[in-house]
């Protein structure tokens, strides 16, 4: 085999690298996944905290459910400075973009990885020593979460998937929706998948953005475990509360 000078010379620096190079590189895509991942994690926290208001019951002053007031507050963010619902709309656009970028990057990387792997497969069962169940099933857990999110939006935001849906009556909608055993099971299964997804993702993102120091590396795993556990327990508490009748 003979090597000569490679034919193409990359335009490696400058603005073209920014647009063409960085974001089309696998490391750049992993950066995007990590950054959108952080955004989605923060959203999960906010979403959970908001939803936990279902345990707060009825506001003694207005007589409305706390969680209904919370949803109203979201719609009136920005007060009289902006049209009603516009800030929430911006949040939703941002959230959708994060989803699209996160998933788009994952699809692009998956395609490249399958191409890099080629057709050859090991005959012997691979003995994965470091890769764990969560890391190897990111695509699967991600897909489950995506399907659930689509249903979740149709169910509780748009109401298509909930015959008893009443716009603005968050508490009643949730109770009505999660009282259906199939829906509650799907909800819980999706949250388990989400927890697996976070277990790897919340660890992996530090690696992707290069936050590394041998002294603190072990903390990354604790962080990921606690984060996943917090979201899982928090989210599961709601259907369980509805099932047991604690919230009705």
């Amino acid at each position: 085999m003979t090597t000569t000078k490679r034919a193409h010379v990359h335009d490696r620096y400058g603005w073209r690298a920014w647009l063409g190079g960085f974001f089309s590189s696998s490391i750049g895509l992993k950066w995007l996944m990590a950054l959108t991942g952080i955004g989605l994690l923060l959203y999960l926290v906010a979403h959970l905290i908001g939803n936990l208001k279902i345990f707060f019951g009825v506001d003694p002053v207005t007589g409305a459910y706390e969680i209904d007031l919370y949803s109203e507050a979201l719609r009136t963010l920005g007060g009289h400075l902006v049209p009603k619902g516009s800030v929430l709309l911006l949040f939703r656009i941002g959230l959708s973009l994060m989803f699209i970028i996160h998933i788009g990057s994952a699809v692009a990387l998956t395609r490249r990885n399958l191409a890099a792997r080629g057709k050859g497969r090991y005959d012997a069962t691979r003995h994965y020593a470091a890769a764990n169940y969560a890391s190897r099933t990111m695509r699967m857990s991600g897909t489950i979460v995506l399907l659930f999110v689509l249903f979740h939006v149709a169910d509780l935001t748009l109401g298509y998937a909930n015959p008893d849906f009443v716009y603005g009556a968050v508490h009643d909608n949730m109770v009505a929706s999660l009282s259906r055993p199939i829906v509650a099971l799907f909800y819980m299964a999706a949250n388990v998948a989400l927890a697996f997804h976070i277990y790897h993702g919340a660890w992996s993102l530090f690696q992707s953005i290069g936050t590394v120091n041998p002294k603190y590396n072990s903390l990354r795993r604790y962080f990921a475990v606690s984060f996943a556990a917090f979201i899982l327990l928090g989210n599961l508490s709601i259907p369980l509360a509805i099932w047991t009748g604690w919230v009705s």
Partner: peptide
């Protein structure tokens, strides 16, 4: 990246 896949942090 012209030749190989991308890192998804398995650690294998």
């Amino acid at each position: 990246e012209e030749y190989f896949g991308s890192c998804t942090n398995h650690g294998e």
